[in-house]
């Protein structure tokens, strides 16, 4: 149950195979596991289904489109109206080379929470009467209609935190937590990049954002600067 410490992002991806389903933490650039995304690119893994809030919005996930490593995305932000701002992912989507499942952001968070927490789904009003609801079951509870949204899980979650102790307890910072804590609960293998790995006990238990039980691999690595908008 102690996390394994890896020296490089490339080593931390040991065992990942083609066709993998990966959750990536982060919202825009904050809290995205950019070193792990670049390592996945170098590794050449193909047929990746990505589960992330955004692609092509200050994140590095579009780099997985350069050589066609990405098979599809489940996300909330994917394409832009402006042709000038279209990402490589959007171009590939237009050509039918990748798939896209768009989901409302709150629903996205709760589906992952359900997947990580052993729940069979989420009932929400978000998306009712919209294209998101097409083909989905609605359920009435106490006179209110809700959309049934299914849980999301992944083979691997790649996330970022500020610090990890050697046991795998994680401390987050600022707006960089976003989807990282929920994603840490919802994958078979959880790989974390951090600014700093510290001794057990160095993180105040009050400040642990993700308890070590959820974490498999940790890797300390300097941040790759993310472009701001």
């Amino acid at each position: 149950m102690t996390a394994t410490i890896y020296d490089t992002p490339d080593d931390a991806l040991d065992g990942i195979t083609d066709g993998v389903r990966v959750m990536f933490g982060g919202f825009s650039g904050a809290g995205a596991p950019t070193n792990l995304i670049r390592a996945l690119r170098r590794r050449g893994t193909r047929g990746i289904t990505g589960i992330a809030n955004n692609i092509g919005y200050g994140d590095f996930l579009v780099e997985l489109c350069e050589d066609g490593q990405l098979a599809g995305m489940i996300c909330t932000f994917a394409t832009r109206a402006s042709v000038a701002l279209r990402s490589r992912f959007d171009e590939q989507l237009a050509r039918g080379e990748v798939t896209l499942e768009l989901t409302p952001q709150g629903t996205f968070a709760e589906r992952i929470r359900a997947g990580g927490g052993g729940l069979g789904g989420v009932l929400t009003r978000s998306g009712l009467g919209t294209p998101v609801a097409e083909g989905k079951t609605t359920i009435e509870v106490d006179g209110e209609t809700y959309l049934l949204e299914r849980p999301l899980r992944a083979d691997v979650a790649m996330i970022r935190a500020q610090r990890a102790d050697r046991l795998g307890n994680l401390e987050y910072r600022g707006a960089a937590r976003n989807f990282n804590p929920v994603m840490a609960t919802a994958a078979d293998l959880v790989i974390v990049e951090v600014d700093e790995i510290v001794e057990v006990g160095a993180i105040d238990p009050e400040r642990v954002g993700t308890p070590a039980v959820f974490v498999d691999r940790i890797m300390q690595c300097p941040r790759i600067p993310v472009p701001f908008r």
């Binding site: 994917a78 394409t79 109206a81 989507l93 237009a94 768009l102 409302p104």
Partner: peptide
């Protein structure tokens, strides 16, 4: 295609 983000919620 498009981007929903938090708008629906």
């Amino acid at each position: 295609g498009g981007s929903i983000g938090g708008a629906m919620d």
